[in-house]
Simulated scan of single mutants.
Amino acid sequence: MALPGFRKRRSTNTSVADGSAKDGASAENDATIKRLTKTRRNVALISSFCYLLAFVFLVLVEIGNTKGTKVLGDIYFFKLNLANIIPQSAPSLTLMNSIARTLGLHDFYQVGLWNFCEGYEDEGITFCSTPTNLWWFNPVEILKNELFAGASIPLPNQVNEILNLLHIASNIMFGFFLASTILDFLMIFIAPIVLYSRWWSMPVGILSFIAFILATVAAAIGTAMSLIFKYALTSQSDLNIQAEVGMKMLAFMWIAVGFTFVSFVIHSGLCCCCTSRRDVRTGRRGGQNMPAASMEEKPKMGSKLPSFGRNSSKS
């Protein structure tokens, strides 16, 4: 009758001891995993921070020139200065202010991603068009709509030749900028998932590469479009049209591309470098430094039960 009681007390004490050992081993395992994956965690956080910065600069590109404020009004792709443009209908007209005003035009027009703004040199921006999806800048249509009746301006042939290409390029740039902005925002929260396994680095790296390509192509189109307009409109010296490229817009675009590229390089390296949680748990990297896990305790428990049974039978 004493044996069952002895067996019962021993099993209870053993289970409590095993539970305490498992908890201690689990806590020690977690500490070891955190220590061994510290480098990967820090690098993943750096990539998320780079995505955050890229997202901020892409947002500035998106909202640039949408309003005539001091900050947003200075962010544009290019700016046309027509204050001293030479009209074909009145080449010898004596003007009080600028030639553009007498024709019904504004002194300058500046182009953003969603719309255009216009204004006068002494007043600043006086009007911005309503932001529109897939908007593109058509200088011929805008200038013709604002000219007074009977007035006309001899635009260079280069402008008319690139309008169709400009339409297509503007739509591609608009879509790519919007897609890269959304993707960079999502990657801020997706990037840390690579901490758990190196297998996650491949799909995350593919998304990072897509975000980089979208931002790069959009920035390249915006830069090319601004430079083409500048040289096409200023090539006619007798027309006296001045054009300038928005350096702030170009800087914001390429800074966003740079941060996205850094994140892509990081995720490419994480495919084969830095220990992940899965590497530690499977023993591929750093597993030999981990304390005994609960899986190693199961054979010990199984080996004790038969021997305990043999001892009870002999007694």
Rank of each mutant, 00 (worst) to 15 (best):
M1H: 08
R7N: 05
R9S: 11
T14H: 10
S15C: 05
S15Q: 11
V16Q: 09
D18Q: 08
D18E: 09
D18P: 00
G19Y: 11
N29E: 09
N29Q: 08
N29I: 13
D30M: 09
D30E: 12
T32G: 14
K34F: 09
R41T: 15
N42W: 13
Y51I: 01
L52P: 00
A54Q: 04
F57G: 01
F57P: 01
L60V: 05
K70G: 10
L72C: 01
L72P: 01
G73C: 05
I75L: 07
Y76W: 08
F78T: 00
K79C: 01
L80Y: 05
L80A: 07
Q88V: 07
P91R: 09
L93G: 00
N97T: 13
A100R: 04
F108T: 02
Q110R: 11
F116Y: 15
C117I: 07
G119W: 04
Y120S: 05
E121T: 12
G124T: 03
V140K: 11
E141K: 07
K144S: 12
N145K: 13
F148Q: 11
A149L: 13
A149P: 11
A151C: 04
A151S: 09
P156A: 06
I162N: 08
L163E: 06
L163A: 03
L163H: 01
I168R: 06
S170G: 06
N171H: 14
N171S: 10
G175H: 02
A179R: 03
L183E: 01
F185R: 00
M187R: 00
M187S: 01
A191N: 10
V194Q: 01
S197C: 13
S201F: 03
S201I: 03
L207D: 04
A220I: 13
G222K: 03
L227F: 14
F229W: 12
Y231K: 08
S235Y: 04
Q236T: 08
N240I: 07
G246V: 05
M247K: 14
K248N: 09
K248M: 11
F252Y: 15
V257H: 07
T260I: 03
F261G: 07
I266G: 00
S268Q: 06
S276Y: 05
R278H: 10
D279N: 10
D279P: 06
T282K: 09
G287T: 05
Q288I: 14
Q288S: 14
M290G: 00
A292P: 05
A293E: 06
E296R: 09
K300L: 15
S303E: 13
S307I: 14
G309H: 12
R310W: 12
